[in-house]
Computed example of a mutant assay.
Amino acid sequence: MTTVGIATGAGRGMGEACARRLADLVDVLLLVDRDEAAAASVAEDLNAAGHRATAEAFAVDVTDGAGLGRLADRVAERGALRAVAHAAGISPTMADWRRIFEVDLVGTALLAEALRPLATVGTAHVYFASMSPMIAGIDPTPDIAAILDDPLHPDFLDRIRDAVGPDIENTALAYPWAKHGVHRFARREAVRLGPAGARVCSLSPGVIDTPQGRQEATNHPSMQRLIDATPLGRTGRSEEIASVVAFLLSDEASFLSGVDILVDGGVYAAVRDH
């Protein structure tokens, strides 16, 4: 059976790095990005390099449910879903609070919903979250957690704003709340897909040297304090994140599911008790 992989946000940054690692794990690799030209450029490069996978670009916004349905149809046409590295996301300086929730949490849930019928023995998903909920100390009450656990509710955004309060409109707070939602969603999805023999984990990067990461550091001087506090004394590289993703999606991690993997150079360990 032909195996199919998906890398979202594959046109640049950590999504591209994940795509490059997955190119030798599957037979067909769909490079998903809003920027079709960027994804097509990566696909061309991968195909020219002679990897195992045939790479093809697939343009879609992860908040577009109909578009994600077409993505699922494309996977089914090409073979069996084997690996999903969902790196697409936006950070606090890139949009308002609603769009952050829509892309980072609702988009994750929409992608999972579209791909759920394709889960089979050996399918593995990794959803990108963040260390930010841990740094921010996000700890929802049961009522707020119940809202956060229903991101596809038609009134989700209004409900979460009413529950958390107007401070959620601060994108620096909306982002960790959305990523905390991804942590919770990954655990719940692991329970849903386990009976099919499929696995789900989330991955929480620390401060990673990408264009997006550099933009955040420029606009949020507090990020420099996190870099300074990192025991390894530096930012991470996209390739280091992709290496962990590749392990999580590999058969070597066949009993690993329902957990978050923190890849932050030790910064949370350094700041958690201070």
Rank of each mutant, 00 (worst) to 15 (best):
P205W: 05
R159C: 02
L193A: 13
V106K: 01
H183V: 01
I227A: 10
S132T: 13
A114I: 05
P142Q: 07
R161H: 14
D150F: 04
I168V: 14
L232W: 13
A229M: 14
L249Q: 08
A186S: 13
F156Q: 07
A186H: 06
R192A: 15
C201L: 11
G236R: 08
P205R: 04
A172P: 00
D150I: 08
E240V: 04
L105N: 10
G206I: 03
P205M: 08
L148N: 02
R214S: 04
L111G: 09
D150M: 04
H153N: 08
R214P: 04
T171E: 12
P142Y: 06
F128V: 09
S202R: 05
R199T: 07
A124C: 12
G236Q: 11
I147S: 08
A186K: 06
G122R: 07
K179C: 05
R187D: 02
D167Y: 03
H183T: 00
P176I: 02
P117Q: 08
L148M: 12
T218V: 14
A136L: 06
H183K: 05
P205K: 05
P117V: 07
I144N: 12
P176L: 03
R237F: 08
A145H: 01
L118H: 13
H220V: 15
G194T: 09
P133L: 14
D155M: 01
G236C: 10
V191P: 00
I241G: 04
M223N: 14
A124Q: 14
I241Y: 05
Y175T: 01
T210D: 03
A136D: 11
A124Y: 13
G165Q: 01
G165P: 05
E216Y: 02
V244Y: 07
A217R: 15
P151D: 01
G122D: 06
L193P: 13
R214T: 00
V244W: 07
A229V: 12
H183R: 12
V121R: 15
F185I: 00
D167P: 00
D209F: 11
G137Y: 09
V191W: 00
L157G: 04
A217Q: 15
S243M: 04
G236E: 07
R184Q: 08
R161I: 12
L118D: 14
D150Q: 11
G233F: 14
G137I: 03
F247H: 10
I168P: 05
R225N: 14
A114W: 07
T123L: 11
L193R: 11
D143V: 00
N219L: 14
V245F: 09
